[in-house]
Every structure is written in C-alpha cells, then in structure tokens.
Nucleic acid binder design. Structure first.
Lengths: 227, 227
DNA sequence: GTTATAATTGTAAAAAATACACAAAGCGAA
DNA sequence: TTCGCTTTGTGTATTTTTTACAATTATAAC
C-alpha cells in the first residue's frame, strides 16, 4: 500500500537515549541491530514515527516496545538530520533523552521484539551505528548540565531515597566528590524534596527517606546547585 | 514526478525565529501568508527541507530567501510535531533561532519571493498561523536564558559597539535595569569582548568601541552573568 | 555493653555580588 | 576660552553566598 507525494520526503524517526544507574555507573540502553545497515552493531533504541502520534508519544511507545518500561522522565534532546547519516537514504531523527529509576531498569534487558537490549556503562561503549556515538556524547553533556542547574537527580532513583543515595547519584554523574553537609543544605533549601515518615535501616544509623515534591518547580533558577 | 514510499511520511519543514533590535524593541521577523491555510495571517519564515541539505543549511537558505540576510547566529531550538498542528496534514517542523545585527536588519523588509516580510515587536504580535505563537514564546525564553548564562548579546549588535549599547541590548531583552559599573566589570572580566582602537563620538564624551573576540568561549560557565 | 558503621548537624573564613557617586572627555554656545 | 551640557568611565565598602571543615547520634553486630 504505497504512499505518494509530489516532493521527496525524508523518513522521520525517534531515537531515545535512556540513562540509568547500574552498579554505581551511569549506563545507557542499547539494542543490537539484526538487519543491515550496521547489522550486529549496537544502536540507540528508536523507530519510525506513526502518523497519528506526537513525537513524544512516539518516543514513549518505542521505549516501551523495546524495554517494557512505562514510566520515565522524557525530554526532547536534539534533531539530527545530516543527509548522509543513514546509508539507506535521508532519515531525520528526533532524539529524546530519558532517565529511569535504578530499580525499574533491572527488567529492561530483553525487550519485546526479539532485539537484544542491554545496558552499557557510558565510559565503556562499543562502536555504535549511525551517528549514535555523537548523540550519546551530547546527551551526557545535557545530563550533567541538568544536574548542575536543575534537580533532576531523583529521576534516577526509586520513589523514596536517602540523601546519601541522592548525593552518590550526583557524584557519579558529575564525576566529582561533593561535601555532605553542603549538599544536604542546598538540596533541602531548594525545596524540591521532602522527608517521608520512613527510614531505611542498614549497617549504621538508619537514614531518613525522602521523596520528590510534586509541586516543586523543577528548574532551580539562577545558580548551579553545586560548586 | 511523484515520490512513493511503503509507509506514510510526515512532511518536514524548518521555521526560523529571527530576532533583532529595532527602535529599542526586541522584534521578530514574520511573513504574511498568501495561500491557505491561514491566508493573510502572519507566520514564521520557513519552508521544506531539501533532500540534499542539512537542517541547518535549510534554515540558512530559507532565511536568505525570505530576507536576503546571509550572516547570522543560528541555533536549533526545538522540533514541533503534533499531528494536528497543520490542517493540511502531518507536518513536522524543526525550528531554528537566529539573532541578527540591528544594522543588517534594515534590509530585511520585502524578501525575494514576493512574500511580505516585516518586523514585529515581540510585545505586540499579531495572531499567528499554526503553533507559531507558542514557538515564539519558547524562543524568547531561550533568548533570555542565553543572555543570562552566555554572552550572546553582541550577536544583536554591529561588529563594533560601545559598552553602553551592549548594556542597553541586555536591558531590553532581560527587561530590567542593570548597574553600569557592575555590567562593565562583568562583561570585561568574562573576556568575551576586546577594545578596538576606534571611538564613537556623539553628544557626550566619546565612547570606546569594542568587538567580540573570536577566540572567546561563548558559554560563560557556572554563573548568571547578571543579577 | 562495647564496637563498628553510617547519618546527622553548625560555624567560621573566603569569595562573590551588590549598591552606590563623582571625575573626565568632548561638544557647542555664549 | 570658558562655561555648561551630555555621556563615558571608574573604585570601594557592605552584604550575601559559598566554601571548608569535625564531632555527635542512632542503630546493628558482636
């Protein structure tokens, strides 16, 4: 059932850079391609945009199809459209950027349509298909930037988390040590998280659990959160 | 000469939000539509992406076709792709964001292909076609943000400019008064502009002319430039 | 109950941001 | 040539923010 147009049209896809934390490393979800071009190579999950859905819906759908993940922070990253980025012809891709909680990410391996999906630590990526290496590099810059200027860190954590867990998340992504007292003061003064009645017990003193405040403004204006 | 595909494809366009300063007001370039839909209404300049060009080249080309303008700061803003944003069918548009110097902007009226182009102050926009009102609102947020965190103000000025002119540019866009001494200290310490041997004479004491330093890093890290 | 482990808390010093006012340079008119 | 007008150009004291830094508390394990 062919579709005909007076002028040539590029194909339009969405790709998603999904970040999570696994074993104290920032990791990105990749699928192994079965078909040419780049058969056998790893690539970002993604696919064609259907005619009836928004771009964000397309990204959400592809993410769910490939990983089974339903809830995630999703944000448009950039649109890549160089004429030669896909050897099959002109393909323009709108790239989204997703953060998912560490505990949810465990189920992501596999995926529905028999593509092999796996998490790869960002500091140890295989060669990637298309321009996906460049895309991931840009997504990481954006992620670091978001964590410095907004309070997006809890998107990578379960619903309730301790301040130490949150701090470690920031340290992993920013790649630097943070002072515990200063971190706590800043994150609490920013008013984006609130204590819950629960505690997490473990080896030492039990830790208060916090959660994200729904009514918080995500954007921390005017200053970096951390030095 | 029709083009046929196995699956339907959205049309792909670029639109450009071109900002300039005119008569001390931040203004945006609009063209008046001649054809339906929205015939007679104002809209952003833009058009279809050719198969052989990058998205940025398409934006540059459309800008030049509609305005004759060749040099400008151009940056990708966002991609809008709601299925119902164009009554003719599915049209996805990659929006770019351009800043052009005040003196260059004088020639922009008219444009090559008989479309009527005109500058409109952003605080006094007519009703716009498609989702272009929303797009301009977002572009303004991005412009303010850029001026606060980076030193993009000189993109709206001629090659050589006085510090007072630069300060007024910032004041117009940010919508607040800035302290002269603090402004000068900050902008000079940022190292993004350098003095030229030239002076501008006028009614009072002659003013030193400055220019942008090519080797400067555009991004001022870590802090807002102004209060 | 003693020890080990991790959570929690405050303050002093340093750095940055802010508020603020007058001298200098040229122009033109008296 | 000088006086007044206009605009440029400059420094410092105060306030606010950021940073660096260590002892105490709550629980679990032994």
């Amino acid at each position: 059932m062919p579709y005909t147009y007076d002028y040539p049209r590029p194909a339009l896809t969405v790709d998603i850079v999904v970040f999570t934390l696994r074993e104290s490393r920032l990791s990105v979800l990749l699928i192994q391609r079965k078909e040419p071009p780049f058969a056998g190579m790893w690539a970002l999950p993604g696919g064609f945009v259907n005619m009836g859905e928004t771009l964000e819906e397309a990204a959400q759908r592809e993410l769910e199809e490939e990983t089974g993940l339903q809830e995630s922070y999703l944000e448009q990253l950039y649109t890549y459209g160089n004429p030669d980025r896909d050897p099959r012809g002109r393909v323009v891709t709108v790239v989204y950027f997703a953060l998912i909680a560490a505990d949810a990410s465990i189920q992501a391996e596999g995926g529905s349509d028999a593509t092999r999906a796996a998490w790869h630590p960002v500091e140890d990526l295989p060669p990637l298909a298309f321009d996906h290496t460049e895309i991931i590099a840009y997504a990481m810059r954006r992620l670091r930037y978001k964590l410095e200027y907004t309070a997006a860190g809890f998107e990578l954590l379960p619903e309730e988390f301790t301040l130490t867990e949150l701090q470690i998340t920031y340290e992993i992504i920013l790649g630097e040590q943070l002072d515990k007292r200063n971190f706590r003061r800043r994150i609490l003064e920013a008013g984006i998280i609130e204590p819950t009645p629960h505690m997490r017990t473990g080896e030492g003193r039990p830790a208060r659990l916090y959660r994200y405040r729904d009514d918080a403004v995500a954007e921390i204006k005017a200053r970096r959160l951390f030095p």
